[in-house]
Design a protein around this nucleic acid. Structure first.
Lengths: 342, 342
DNA sequence: AAACTTCGTGTTAGCGTTCACATTCCGCCC
DNA sequence: GGGCGGAATGTGAACGCTAACACGAAGTTT
């Protein structure tokens, strides 16, 4: 009795034998090499089909020195941006024949980032997509191996690493401008954590709109993206009756704000107008539905993969930045100053 | 002028040379093989350190036939469950020396699932974690290669594949029981999409609590997890004044419900009590703060990795199911029937 | 003291690809 | 019709690692 030889999955040589060609010809068919006679190609394809052959990517990576896997580093949060981008990246990568190895970091400090990177480098990923919206000034990105193609998403548009971003400053400007246009004068901003590059840029946009309009420039209230921090900010603002408008740096904080104002009997938008940021799916169902700034994360994901694959293809780490425009979504949390109760 | 030989990263033989041993000894040190003299081990470790050597995982996978990569299939949604589980899985896997290759599916049909699986199989992942809470009755999981270790999360607790789940029926029962205890009699349920196994189980729990209490059994309203669908359900319920309590199968739908009731002047919890499910971070900041059922996704993620690694280690695809208990989180969206306005 | 063990280490042969080069085939020109 | 050139295919050696076995130097038994 012979030992069962069909135990391991078919390899290229098995296909070659079945098609009566050499393994190299099989390889050529697989990689779309031009010089293969159509008849031979068909024979090989038939053998592949019949044996259920699948190329072994580990072997391919070893032999060729390049892998078809991308590394993705993201922030471990439920925020729309990172999550939506992750899905978009995965989808785009897969449709280009790449797979995505994901790593998440709890915070964007140098050490976590460097741990994640080395974990991914060890898997010999072909390139890195970094969603963590890290502030490049603390140079956490300098831990990147200089040869490794990399793209950042939602990061510093001035960074030394290629990246795709939404114009956060413009977003902040648009939100504030909208409130100014409604006649508001004192517009408070609840910003995100200071180590988030996006948070800072929204502040800049807000400030620019205010100075441009000659409006007062109140102190920024610093939140942490959470509804809780928005709520806390809202309780602070209860004792500031001259504040008729608030621009929250994301929708979650805006939600907390709405909650706090509701508890304190300050009606939105009658007494106070509120604009959020992100336009999460639930924003339209807050009480009241929230005016917000939408970012196209799906597009960012796609673009970043595109950028990365181009770098991988060319073999050089080019620096290129793509900036997308945000979009104002009007709902019921904003109204002209002094408007009658709705 | 010689060509630069230091171009490629150091390999095992380089370390071996530096430590004056054979590459096999380096391999032994790396894999914790017992029979290595401490002095030799130290010498090898020093060489590794000095050269900055990192094992090439592709080569290791090829030579050993086993990889240290897990495949993860998840649903492409912003729902708390899948996202939180994904992060927990990644964290647990990494701390056990594994990496996670992620794939997302738009829906849980046979074809998407099978595409994802074959994409991951091709990368020769050591095992699969499937978050898609697929109904096993349509046997979408039968596309799994029978030899591949696999674990499902949030899936059918009776499935032929090992899995970790929260007791959804109990959750549904607890939510409904809570409302019954407050004196409510007509408790409507807005369930999730029918192809979600969890949705069905919550319905069962709801129904059991009602029949047990001899309460009427209203028609289920079918939603799709979105706030919009909760909102639509809420508008339907406007014309049912005998309904004093609603159990929504997730917090997003509960949010839509709150919105609809607010628009129609039905006060929560004075006129209607509402219970949600998931306890998302924002639930405490809804208007009013939402009573909900909490699930420990982090624990599910950890447990599922544990289960999977055990299967991989033993080499057999055992079937084992772990069930965790949900937890009721009381807030302000529920009150005794006929309670005075708060 | 010869003959086993055991430990520590080295040697060799794969794993399934791709790459560089060698070879064969065939049509075409002079 | 012999020689040429490009298209089609084959051959052998990597890639960096692990597995299996071989081997010498100890220690242990008889």
């Amino acid at each position: 009795m012979q030992p069962d030889a069909a135990e391991r999955p078919p390899a290229m040589t098995d296909v070659a034998k079945a098609a009566a060609v050499s393994h190299q010809t099989v390889s050529r068919v697989l990689n779309g090499h031009p010089n293969v006679r159509p008849a031979t190609r068909d024979r090989v394809l038939a053998a592949i089909e019949q044996l259920g052959y699948r190329p072994n990517l580990a072997a391919r990576a070893l032999a060729s020195g390049r892998s078809t896997q991308l590394g993705l580093i993201t922030l471990n949060t439920m925020l729309l941006g990172p999550v939506a981008t992750l899905y978009a990246v995965e989808r785009a990568a897969r449709s280009s024949g790449y797979s995505v190895s994901v790593t998440s970091v709890g915070s964007i400090d140098r050490q976590s980032l460097s741990e994640s990177i080395s974990h991914l480098v060890q898997q010999s990923v072909a390139g890195l997509i970094i969603i963590a919206p890290v502030d490049s000034r603390d140079s956490a990105l300098t831990v990147l191996p200089p040869e490794l193609p990399a793209v950042s998403v939602e990061a510093d548009p001035e960074s030394a690493v290629s990246g795709v971003t939404v114009d956060q400053e413009l977003g902040g400007y648009m939100a504030t401008r909208h409130l100014l246009d409604l006649g508001h004068r004192t517009i408070v901003h609840i910003c995100g954590p200071t180590d988030f590059i996006e948070a800072g840029q929204r502040v800049v946009g807000w400030r620019r709109a205010l100075t441009e309009a000659g409006a007062p420039l109140p102190e920024v209230i610093v939140g942490d993206w959470s509804a809780q921090s928005g709520y806390d900010a809202g309780r602070l603002l209860a004792s500031a009756p001259d504040v008729t408008a608030v621009f929250a740096a994301n929708d979650n904080m805006a939600l907390g704000l709405l909650r706090a104002f509701s508890e304190q009997g300050r009606s939105v938008p009658h007494d106070v107008s509120i604009v959020g940021f992100d336009d999460i799916a639930e924003a339209g169902f807050f009480t009241p539905p929230l005016t917000s700034i939408r970012q196209d994360f799906a597009e960012m994901g796609r673009r970043s993969v595109e950028l990365l694959l181009r770098q991988i293809g060319s073999g050089v780490r080019s620096v290129e930045h793509i900036t997308l425009a945000p979009e104002l979504v009007l709902r019921e949390s904003t109204a002209p100053v002094g408007a009658p109760a709705g």
